[in-house]
Design a protein around this nucleic acid. Structure first.
Length: 492
RNA sequence: GCACCGGUGGCGAAGCGGCUAACGCGCAGGUCUGCAAAACCUGUAUACGCGGGUUCGAUUCCCGCCCGGUGCUCCA
């Protein structure tokens, strides 16, 4: 199945496929590790994860590179302020970032590249740009890209830059630049700041050159797909194109994918606005990692997603439905044989699921046939019409669903536990929701013991005691499921 | 100001020229139960922002308007 994906560069939905015999080469802009990531950051990484997983499900080998920006103005500022080394400072947030990726079940790219480990490649690129007459050095020792050297500038974001004439609104003298729109390739070192001594001077790389250099290092001068948040389209990605194509005279990335913003209560979420939630904030409020994943995935990447706590509650319930169904199906005993109608329903669900994803990663549409299948199969089970072959087929459909969505398999305990641990270690205990602590306050064995006692009480028709135990467990977030097959329980 | 995106039942959200307008949540009823809960099933809602136009036919295309958002600067 071929993926049709919107391409910002062409403005159309284009086929995305690797060259024959080659892996699909992807570069996706990663985090700047100066703080904990917020859920808006993770929406982008999650959508790229959906892309990855769908391609893999279709048997397409990947070479996916993600950068870690571990040097930039904010990081330098913060290190200077806190008196630690750059590496000490960034290591902490880099580790936190990976923990968060794990919590959300975001797969690791094949290559993870730190900016600080690729300085020579960036320097080399600046030198090549200088040789081509597209870069110049200022008196203070910074290097800039000469925008005039790249007439196609603006082709990605479709911007008409003619309205921004030099000098109209920017005082050129203050910037030492030839043109107001020229952007920094290399920033001269200032006293006390981390810097590198290189053939082009002492300093540190600009943000844009970092991505160009690392993308070319691992993917070559031309590659299949470049992805990132919509805000990076201009100027970051536009600048990457300008730098790279000026040097190589080849198209940088053929296909560009931009994930639209996540809004909170209808407003843009950003660190500068302060209205943001980190993944950890949500985990400490008691939301499960899987619910956060599903909520952030379910709105297709090309639409803005308005995040609300209701959406997390909805997602939690939806996941419960899937998990309950899966448990019922996988654990049940069914007569051998097959039910033709169910077989057809399962195959149709799978085809619709895959088809929706192949159509520009329409995750909202892709979910629908899975839930329809759940209903159909539940009905069949109630009526005793589901056979072992049907079970096998439906389970395989669920596996494919989960190969992309990854929410049925329950591994929610670990991220929550870690978030609590982290909160305790960093003096954020007050942020842990009381219900969450209550939920953690009872061990599995204690639950089992109380349930055994309750069963005994029920047998003796001591309903008062049985109900007492029931409400006691309920207070601790334990949900009891009485059924013909016996008692099951789960944590809310 | 310029540019772009969106406004679908109580909420979220697909669909984008002609099917009973998906799906999830919610809500109601039923099955089950000592009672509940959970689970499942069924049902539910006179949902396509407003006004024109094109068309045999428009939620879907065009124009205008209103509302919300985003970009144009660091930002996923």
């Amino acid at each position: 199945m071929t993926l049709r994906l919107f391409n910002t560069l062409t403005g159309e939905v284009d086929t995305l496929a690797p060259a024959p015999g080659e892996p699909l080469r992807i570069y996706a802009c990663g985090p700047t590790v100066y703080d904990y990531g917020h859920i808006g950051n993770f929406r982008t990484f999650l959508q790229v994860d959906v892309l990855r997983r769908f391609l893999k499900l279709n048997g397409i080998p990947l070479r996916h590179v993600m950068n870690i920006t571990d040097v930039d103005d904010r990081i330098i500022q913060n290190t200077v302020a806190s008196g630690v080394t750059l590496r000490e400072y960034t290591a902490r947030f880099e580790q936190a970032f990976f923990e968060d990726l794990d919590a959300l079940r975001i797969e690791r790219p094949e290559v993870i590249a730190r900016a600080t480990e690729h300085i020579p490649r960036m320097v080399e690129l600046v030198q090549r740009l200088a040789a081509a007459g597209a870069a110049y050095k200022t008196d203070e020792g910074s290097w800039y890209f000469r925008l005039a050297a790249f007439p196609e500038y603006g082709k990605l974001s479709k911007k008409d830059l003619s309205g921004m004439e030099d000098g109209a609104r920017v005082d050129l003298d203050r910037y030492e630049k030839d043109s107001a729109r020229d952007f920094a390739l290399w920033k001269a070192a200032k006293p006390g700041e981390t810097s590198w001594d290189t053939p082009i001077g002492r300093g540190r790389p600009g943000w844009h050159i970092e991505c160009s250099a690392m993308a070319m290092e691992y993917l070559g001068e031309s590659f299949d797909l470049h992805a990132g948040g919509e805000d990076l389209m201009f100027p970051h990605h536009e600048n990457e194109i300008a730098q790279s194509e000026t040097v190589t005279h080849k198209p940088f990335a053929r296909h560009w994918m931009h994930v639209r913003f996540l809004l909170v209560d209808g407003r843009k979420m950003s660190k500068s606005e302060g209205n943001f939630f980190t993944l950890r904030d949500l985990l400490l409020k008691g939301y499960k990692a899987s619910a956060i994943r599903l909520a952030l995935i379910s709105v297709p990447y090309r639409h803005q997603l308005n995040f609300t706590f209701d959406s997390l509650t909805d997602a939690t319930k939806a996941i419960e439905r899937l998990r309950t169904f899966h448990r019922r199906l996988a654990g049940g005993n069914f007569p051998s044989g097959e039910n033709a109608a169910l077989q057809a329903a399962a195959r149709k669900a799978e085809a619709n699921f895959l088809g929706a994803l192949a159509d520009d990663l329409n995750t909202a549409e892709a979910r629908a046939p899975i839930f329809e299948l759940v209903r159909t199969a539940n009905t069949a089970m109630d009526e005793g019409q589901l056979r072992s072959c049907d079970r096998d087929l439906i389970l395989s459909v669920l596996r494919k669903f989960d190969a992309v969505f990854d929410v049925i398999d329950d591994r929610d305990e670990e991220p929550t536990r870690r978030a609590i641990e982290w909160a305790r270690q960093t003096g954020r205990e007050s942020e842990i929701a009381p219900e969450l602590l209550a939920r953690q306050s009872i061990a599995d064995e204690q639950v089992e013991a109380l349930l055994a006692e309750r069963a005994q009480a029920k047998k003796q028709r001591n309903f008062a005691r049985a109900d007492q135990i029931r409400s006691e467990l309920a207070e601790k977030g334990i949900v009891i499921e009485d059924s013909k097959e016996g008692v099951r329980w789960k944590r809310k």
